[in-house]
Simulated assay, not measured.
Amino acid sequence: MAARVDHLVTSGTFSLDGGTWDVDNNVWIVGDDSEAIVIDAAHDADAILTALNGRTLRAIVCTHAHDDHIDAAPALADATGAPVLLHPEDLPLWRLTHPDRSPDGELADGQVLTVAGTELTVLHTPGHAPGAVCLYAPGLATVFTGDTLFQGGPGATGRSFSDFPTIIDSLRARLLTLPPETEVRTGHGDSTTIGAEAPHLEEWVDRGH
């Protein structure tokens, strides 16, 4: 059976730089009826466990370490035995949320994760966060972008650890070069495609200056 993508929306808060905001997060589960990986364990470990429905969880992959994307990761790891994987450049952000528990493994650019016969390639795409990554699954014609690319533009870069020119470089070099039919499954909000977003890059650059 080929891998499929299951989608869950969880709700909670995002806190950084002294502010707190209510947010809805996309949790993506990639796998088949026997095994899966979770991309961004946000807010509600019990809801994610329910969605897994007894499948073996191979890994909990963090697209970045803002608290709304990792707050449920330790609980989900404890419940399933799955390792939490994070790019090491996001460890300072991780420690703001989980000072007493480290991730179990590192993500590296070009690393390939395999689940249910489907390969997901790690793309290091800094800008929204130093260790932000996207996961490209060509077999599913999908890229999971976390908060690096949304429908309508790049992720926010107005807070600590973020940088606008860096996210533009990541988009230009790593994401908008993917096939135009590639579905973009984001950390918040609706999905889009590379083809729908790529023509607008220079508008985003002008807007960000």
Rank of each mutant, 00 (worst) to 15 (best):
R4T: 12
V5K: 11
D6V: 01
L8V: 14
L8W: 08
G12M: 10
G12Y: 12
D17L: 07
D22Y: 09
D24Q: 14
I29P: 07
G31F: 07
D32N: 15
D33W: 09
A36L: 05
I39D: 09
H43R: 10
D44V: 13
A45Y: 01
T50I: 08
A51Y: 01
N53T: 06
G54S: 03
G54F: 02
V61D: 03
T63G: 09
D67K: 14
P74Q: 07
A75S: 14
A82N: 09
L86M: 07
H87N: 11
P92T: 09
D100I: 05
D100F: 10
D104K: 10
D104L: 04
D109R: 05
L120N: 13
L123P: 05
P126S: 05
P126C: 11
P130T: 08
G131M: 02
C134D: 06
A141F: 00
T142G: 03
T145Y: 06
G153S: 10
A156M: 10
G158D: 11
F161I: 02
I167G: 09
S170Q: 01
S170M: 01
R174K: 15
L176A: 05
L176W: 05
L176P: 04
T177Q: 11
E181R: 11
E183P: 00
T186W: 04
G187R: 13
G187N: 08
G189T: 13
T192Y: 01
I194M: 11
A198K: 14
A198F: 07
P199A: 01
H200S: 05
H200V: 00
H200L: 04
H209E: 06
